[in-house]
């Protein structure tokens, strides 16, 4: 499919401009969905926490690498939350929603989700390597354990390594976030190709740079908070952000318009 065809496909969907603090409404709506149907969300969160704990167990003495792996998770998280989008959609339609609703979307009906997930995983790997290189090159002492990361990177007396690490992460994540912020819910909800969904995502960001920067920062904040609690808050944070992402999509992308002619 050529770019122009993808753009035409994308333009079938209207994008809306939203107020700056709309992310707060998305979080509130996401929390409401989580309360209405908590089990699938908790299960998603627990699985993510178990995966994170397994990584720590597997490579406990390489936190210079794990720091990037944990934050790189943010890049692939939109795919992981696909089941939660399905739950929110069912609740919105007044249908019954349970674990089966979330699991149904994982049946590989087509390769679109898999393709997009692989592309995001590839980008996530790029960030893991960049992060490891940054920490390895600029940390004043070896970063082996989470405590080392806290004292040598986060609370470093001299320099701005932690701020710089986050800033670089933000700059590298910006185009990926712009590509994925509404793409996965759109792929789930409508018949559209991967490139069309990505272009729609970019159009949404172009229409709302400040609200979506706030939304990106909120996602980073909640995820870093969950990591700071030793992953204990992950079972709540994952469903909160997953359901909220669905509401972001619903507010940012309007209904399809009929193709002209």
């Amino acid at each position: 499919m050529s770019d122009s065809q993808a753009l035409l496909e994308s333009r079938h969907f209207l994008t809306r401009s939203v107020p700056l603090f709309s992310p707060v409404n998305w979080l509130v709506a996401g929390w409401r969905d989580f309360q209405r149907c908590p089990l699938p969300g908790l299960l998603h969160g627990v699985l993510v926490a178990v995966f994170g704990a397994s990584l720590c167990w597997w490579i406990p003495d390489r936190f210079w690498l794990l720091g990037g792996a944990f934050t790189g998770f943010l890049l692939v998280a939109p795919v992981i939350a696909t089941g939660l989008y399905a739950i929110s959609r069912a609740l919105e339609r007044g249908e019954s929603a349970d674990l089966a609703t979330a699991l149904t979307v994982w049946k590989p009906r087509d390769g679109r989700m898999v393709t997009f997930g692989l592309l995001l995983a590839l980008a996530g790997t790029g960030w893991v390597l960049t992060s490891a290189a940054l920490i390895w090159s600029f940390a004043a002492a070896p970063v082996v354990t989470p405590e080392d990361f806290l004292h040598v990177v986060v609370l470093a007396e001299h320099g701005w390594l932690f701020e710089g690490w986050l800033l670089l992460g933000g700059l590298l994540a910006a185009p990926l976030f712009a590509s994925s912020v509404v793409a996965i819910p759109l792929l789930l909800d409508r018949q559209i190709g991967v490139l069309g969904a990505v272009l729609t995502s970019w159009r949404v960001v172009m229409a709302n740079p400040a609200p979506l920067a706030l939304w990106g920062a909120a996602i980073a904040f909640f995820t870093l908070f969950a990591m700071a609690t030793g992953l204990l808050a992950m079972p709540v944070v994952i469903p909160l952000l997953g359901h909220a992402s669905w509401h972001a999509y619903r507010e940012l992308v309007g209904s399809a318009v009929s193709p002209a002619g």
Partner: peptide, 20 residues
């Protein structure tokens, strides 16, 4: 618009690190 988004997200995260 995209530059504004990148500046806000990148520097915003850096600022968040400063507060954290």
């Amino acid at each position: 618009r995209f530059g504004t988004f990148v500046i806000l997200l990148g520097l915003g995260l850096g600022m968040m690190g400063f507060v954290a």
